[in-house]
Design a protein around this nucleic acid. Structure first.
Lengths: 217, 217
DNA sequence: ACGACACTTCGGCCCGCGCCGAAACGTCGC
DNA sequence: GCGACGTTTCGGCGCGGGCCGAAGTGTCGT
């Protein structure tokens, strides 16, 4: 159980937790961006990043004078969401600005590489109605055909996976299929990020696209 | 991400991690037992237990002058195993005694209320061959019948669930079905604990019983 | 009623570590 | 080459928290 304490210690600091939370958007951030986000000095952030990378939670990608870091993979995102789900919805966020940001996240957001929040739930129930997935988020044979029509190509990565939502407390679609759908939706302009946050909204084009696919919103 | 840091902090201490690890056997321990296990003073253990209970990881059950504590539920066990899996197999245990104990755990152990280790993997592949579960550990309709013949009764709890193994890195059967099978095996004397640890072995009667059920070992 | 025992509370010690600013290093643009 | 900028290293500060022992509370057996 020594190993458990070590990985927990990495996440037990609010600054490091804030960094991981920011990286949950699936993108790579520079060290300075993360320092600003977590409201600490660049030197402090630098040390935290080194620790998180050494611990295997993050990977880095140096480019010129920049140090880009990102989550080490979907498994890290899943661990983070699992722990956040466990802690559950804490006290209501204070202030109008924080409250509306929180509400936007609850409506829809990316969870590393797939959709979560109410939008993720809507996608899941839509896929369920279409027979693409079963109630426990397994892809059906006909569902695989449906996905391939959207350009999905099976790879080594697990096709589908349940990811527990920390706002809705309902499992939603993760894994390669979830990631692919999210990617397609972005490409087609069906969803877009709100500012630079993880929160996303379904665009008018997205509403129409979803209807044409037979998905309910 | 504040919530994440809080739950992580609970597990970030080696003494609290050791306590949780001990409780992963699914039984209730007294405060003194846990203090001895973690090699700290009773007063120290007492404070840790209070924190873990307040954090929702443990539940207590006071009986006379004893304070029994146990994991708050399967979801806690799943979180613990997920985090341990992530950390992965650390450095080899030092010393002959520790090494053989570690090997026994790898062969077979309980993971809160179901089987894990090589024994858990064997059970999973046996159930897969029998068509009781699918490759992603969903119970098939015929599998449900098979389980009911072994006395399984569906309840509110999720029937099946994948739990990632920290020794084998392979998902095995958790959830209500996994717990029921483990219980039945104990009742029939097919498996038994090694000493007072989480490690279990398949008894000769168990080997025969598994064969009769059509399970491979 | 008494002692034994399980557990808790409190005070105090001390180590770990998160923080910063200053300074050094490396890269980029001009 | 030079300055601007992103990043890292280092020293030092201060707080949080894990540890223990001593003393107190409650329960059990006799």
């Amino acid at each position: 159980m020594e190993a458990l304490a070590q990985v927990a210690a990495l996440l037990a600091d609010r600054t490091r937790a804030a960094i991981c939370g920011a990286l949950l958007d699936g993108r790579a951030w520079t060290a300075t961006e993360l320092a600003a986000h977590a409201r600490v000095a660049p030197s402090t952030a630098s040390e935290h990043l080194t620790r998180l990378i050494d611990g295997g939670l993050l990977v880095e990608h140096r480019q010129g004078r920049h140090r880009y870091v990102a989550l080490a993979g979907p498994h890290v995102a899943e661990l983070l969401e699992a722990m956040t789900s466990f802690a559950g919805p804490g006290p209501k966020p204070r202030g109008l600005r924080a409250a509306s940001a929180s509400e936007a996240m609850a409506r829809g957001r990316t969870c590393y590489d797939h959709l979560a929040g109410k939008l993720g739930i809507a996608l899941k129930s839509g896929l369920l109605d279409l027979g693409v997935v079963t109630a426990d988020l397994t892809i059906t044979p006909s569902g695989l055909v449906w996905l391939k029509e959207l350009g999905f190509e099976p790879s080594k990565r697990q096709v589908s996976r349940a990811c527990l939502d920390w706002t809705e407390r309902v499992p939603h679609l993760a894994g390669a299929a979830g990631a692919h759908l999210c990617e397609v939706f972005f490409e087609r302009g069906w969803i877009k990020r709100i500012g630079t946050t993880r929160a996303v909204v379904l665009t008018p084009a997205g509403e129409q696209g979803w209807r044409e696919l037979g998905l309910t919103t």
